[in-house]
């Protein structure tokens, strides 16, 4: 009996497979992690996106101009926000607009409809292949989106995307 007890107390556990898996997972998560863009870290609102059924189309990362319609969490007012994923294009578009008075490292700008029109026009000149996406909060009045679509249409940006979130299958649409 005493011999058996001793054996139970000190056993050797091979942890190599566990550590292997851990490192594998760690590598996966580290490599797939996408950090918040500079523009996103500067914004003072969160967008509650409208939900749509699952789709395979994803938001492109290259040469994308995003027009956000967000509700400011502090002030509670709705506004348009403009940002671009391509840094050089962004500098060229914003650099020529003195009226914006941006801090040097700003990646997102709060604009009105007329400035937005100017920004979109310049974006189209700088890089005509830039794609446009409308990332609006689902609670904003449709008027905001309608006006924006009109501006896009006037600038010949006739194809654009609405950014949505995937709706869980069991949940009915609002």
């Amino acid at each position: 009996m005493p011999k058996l007890k001793k054996r139970r107390l000190g056993f050797v556990l091979d942890m190599t497979p566990l550590v292997d898996i851990t490192f594998l997972l760690l590598t996966f998560f580290m490599l797939t992690a996408k950090f918040k863009s500079e523009a996103e870290s500067q914004q003072r609102f969160t967008i509650v996106r409208p939900q749509a059924t699952a789709d395979t189309s994803r938001l492109p990362d290259k040469d994308l101009a995003i027009i956000k319609i967000g509700i400011d969490t502090v002030a509670g007012d709705t506004s348009y926000y403009y940002e671009m994923t391509n840094e050089t294009d962004w500098a060229r578009v914003v650099g020529s607009m003195e009226q914006l008075q941006l801090p040097p490292n700003a990646r997102q700008v709060k604009v009105g409809l007329s400035e937005l029109d100017e920004l979109i026009r310049r974006t189209r000149i700088v890089k005509p292949t830039t794609r446009f996406a409308i990332d609006a909060d689902r609670r904003v009045r449709y008027k905001w989106v309608e006006d924006l679509m009109e501006v896009l249409r006037q600038n010949r940006a006739t194809v654009f995307n609405f950014v949505t979130d995937r709706r869980p299958p069991e949940q009915p649409p609002m």
Partner: peptide, 8 residues
């Protein structure tokens, strides 16, 4: 996020 394409 996914996108919904729109043409005007």
């Amino acid at each position: 996020p996914q996108v919904m394409e729109m043409t005007v």
